[in-house]
Lab assay of single mutants.
Amino acid sequence: TEYKLVVVGAGGVGKSALTIQLIQNHFVDEYDPTIEDSYRKQVVIDGETCLLDILDTAGQEEYSAMRDQYMRTGEGFLCVFAINNTKSFEDIHQYREQIKRVKDSDDVPMVLVGNKCDLAARTVESRQAQDLARSYGIPYIETSAKTRQGVEDAFYTLVREIRQH
Results as ranks from 00 to 15, higher is better:
1 T>E: 07
2 E>C: 05
2 E>M: 03
2 E>K: 08
3 Y>N: 08
4 K>W: 03
5 L>C: 06
6 V>K: 04
6 V>T: 06
6 V>N: 05
7 V>T: 09
8 V>S: 04
8 V>P: 01
9 G>V: 01
10 A>Y: 03
10 A>K: 13
10 A>R: 13
10 A>I: 13
11 G>P: 14
11 G>L: 14
12 G>K: 12
13 V>W: 01
13 V>G: 10
13 V>C: 14
14 G>T: 00
14 G>N: 01
15 K>T: 03
16 S>G: 02
17 A>E: 02
20 I>E: 02
22 L>N: 15
22 L>W: 09
23 I>M: 11
24 Q>M: 13
25 N>D: 14
25 N>L: 07
25 N>R: 13
26 H>T: 12
27 F>S: 03
28 V>Y: 10
28 V>M: 13
29 D>L: 08
30 E>H: 10
30 E>Q: 11
30 E>N: 04
31 Y>G: 04
32 D>H: 09
32 D>F: 00
32 D>Y: 01
33 P>Y: 03
33 P>M: 06
33 P>W: 03
35 I>S: 04
36 E>I: 04
37 D>K: 05
38 S>I: 14
39 Y>S: 01
39 Y>V: 05
41 K>R: 12
42 Q>A: 12
43 V>C: 10
43 V>F: 10
44 V>S: 11
44 V>W: 01
45 I>Q: 13
45 I>P: 08
46 D>A: 13
47 G>F: 05
47 G>Y: 08
48 E>V: 13
48 E>H: 12
49 T>D: 13
49 T>Q: 14
49 T>E: 07
53 D>K: 05
53 D>F: 05
53 D>Y: 04
54 I>C: 08
55 L>R: 02
55 L>N: 13
56 D>R: 00
56 D>K: 01
56 D>S: 01
57 T>C: 01
58 A>K: 07
59 G>F: 03
59 G>Y: 01
59 G>I: 05
59 G>S: 06
60 Q>E: 15
60 Q>A: 15
60 Q>T: 14
61 E>I: 04
61 E>D: 14
62 E>K: 15
62 E>G: 12
63 Y>E: 07
64 S>K: 11
64 S>N: 09
65 A>D: 01
65 A>Y: 15
65 A>I: 02
66 M>F: 01
66 M>I: 15
68 D>Y: 04
69 Q>Y: 09
69 Q>K: 03
69 Q>M: 13
70 Y>F: 13
72 R>C: 04
73 T>P: 04
73 T>S: 12
73 T>V: 06
74 G>W: 01
75 E>N: 02
76 G>L: 13
77 F>S: 01
77 F>R: 00
78 L>K: 02
78 L>W: 02
79 C>S: 02
80 V>E: 01
81 F>I: 14
82 A>K: 05
82 A>N: 14
82 A>F: 03
82 A>V: 07
82 A>W: 04
82 A>M: 13
82 A>I: 04
83 I>C: 11
84 N>Q: 07
85 N>Q: 04
85 N>S: 09
86 T>L: 13
86 T>F: 12
87 K>Y: 03
88 S>K: 14
88 S>N: 06
88 S>C: 12
88 S>D: 14
88 S>Q: 08
89 F>D: 04
89 F>G: 07
89 F>K: 03
90 E>H: 11
90 E>L: 14
90 E>W: 08
91 D>W: 10
92 I>H: 00
96 R>S: 14
96 R>H: 01
97 E>P: 00
98 Q>P: 01
99 I>M: 14
100 K>F: 04
100 K>P: 00
101 R>Y: 01
101 R>N: 04
101 R>C: 05
102 V>G: 04
103 K>E: 08
103 K>M: 10
103 K>T: 06
104 D>H: 11
108 V>H: 07
108 V>C: 04
108 V>D: 01
110 M>E: 00
111 V>K: 00
111 V>S: 01
112 L>V: 09
112 L>C: 05
113 V>D: 00
114 G>A: 13
115 N>W: 01
115 N>D: 04
118 D>K: 02
118 D>F: 01
118 D>E: 12
119 L>A: 14
119 L>P: 09
121 A>D: 12
121 A>K: 05
121 A>P: 14
122 R>Q: 08
122 R>D: 11
123 T>A: 09
126 S>R: 11
126 S>E: 14
127 R>T: 14
129 A>H: 08
129 A>K: 01
129 A>N: 06
131 D>V: 01
131 D>P: 03
131 D>R: 11
132 L>W: 14
134 R>W: 07
136 Y>G: 09
137 G>Y: 00
138 I>M: 05
138 I>F: 02
139 P>E: 11
139 P>N: 08
140 Y>R: 03
141 I>D: 00
143 T>N: 06
144 S>V: 13
144 S>G: 11
147 T>M: 09
147 T>F: 08
148 R>F: 14
148 R>D: 14
148 R>T: 12
149 Q>C: 13
149 Q>G: 10
149 Q>F: 04
150 G>I: 10
150 G>N: 06
151 V>N: 08
151 V>A: 11
151 V>G: 10
152 E>C: 10
153 D>F: 02
154 A>C: 09
156 Y>C: 12
156 Y>M: 15
157 T>G: 04
157 T>M: 10
158 L>F: 01
159 V>P: 00
160 R>P: 00
161 E>T: 06
161 E>M: 11
161 E>W: 08
161 E>K: 15
162 I>S: 04
162 I>V: 09
163 R>M: 11
165 H>W: 08
